[in-house]
């Protein structure tokens, strides 16, 4: 109930001087809604992880996890994504200090790192497919490409989302709505980092051992 009361207060713009801009003018409702979305998106990945863990030994005599996973490649992807999560956090931090140029710079760096991540992943997939490790080859490979590819699609969408926000903020600066949009895309990006940490651990690192 306290949450609802506070939400109503927010909608009427009360008490905003004590809160970050993104929580004001009803923004806290949007932010709560986005946490709900993240919880449901987590369910999507839960089912894909469960499927992968059951099917990872079903290689049908074809390529195995230890056979196709490229250690320097996935380690580089991991450090790139961890760094991008940090720079995305700095974009939110700069936004809260009303430092528009700094926020845009960190946002641009985050997008560049995201593109590097997606590029590395795409080249890894292309190389695997060229070596005969296609999605149709075995249940293991179907589950692998579905899980890791769904994460990669999320990251790609995040880059497009950040790009549109970059131009909005560059043209019009921060207000309650654009502050909330930047905060929410940040939540999305950190969430994808969490999912990747589990792909790194459960799929790749356990796969090569």
């Amino acid at each position: 109930m306290a949450v609802m009361e506070q939400t109503l207060k927010d909608l009427h713009g009360a008490g905003e001087h004590r809160k970050p801009l993104e929580y004001t003018h009803g923004g806290s409702v949007n932010i709560l809604g986005f946490w709900l979305f993240l919880a449901t998106d987590l369910m999507v990945f839960a089912t894909l992880f469960a499927t992968y863990l059951i099917l990872k030994t079903h290689t049908d005599g074809g390529p195995t996890a230890a056979g196709i996973f490229d250690i320097p490649g996935y380690v580089a992807e991991t450090f790139i994504l961890l760094t991008s999560s940090f720079t995305c956090g700095l974009a939110t931090y700069s936004m809260r200090k009303n430092a528009k140029a700094a926020a845009l710079t960190w946002l641009a760096i985050t997008m560049a790192l995201g593109l590097a991540f997606v590029g590395l992943e795409a080249s890894e997939f292309a190389k695997d497919v060229a070596d005969g490790a296609t999605m149709q080859r075995s249940a293991f490979l179907s589950a692998f490409y579905t899980l890791v590819g769904t994460h990669g699609a999320h990251v790609s969408l995040g880059i497009l989302w950040m790009a549109s926000l970059f131009f909005q903020i560059a043209r019009r600066g921060f207000d309650a709505v654009r502050a909330r949009k930047l905060f929410v895309v940040g939540l999305y990006w950190h969430f994808l980092d969490i999912v990747w940490v589990f792909i790194f651990t459960v799929v790749y690192t356990m796969g090569v051992r």
Partner: peptide, 19 residues
């Protein structure tokens, strides 16, 4: 931080529990 905190925490805890 901020006001929706308890709802945020419960939401994401439930998400991790279901996962």
């Amino acid at each position: 931080e901020s006001d929706g905190t308890r709802a945020h925490v419960w939401t994401i805890c439930l998400g991790f529990f279901f996962t």
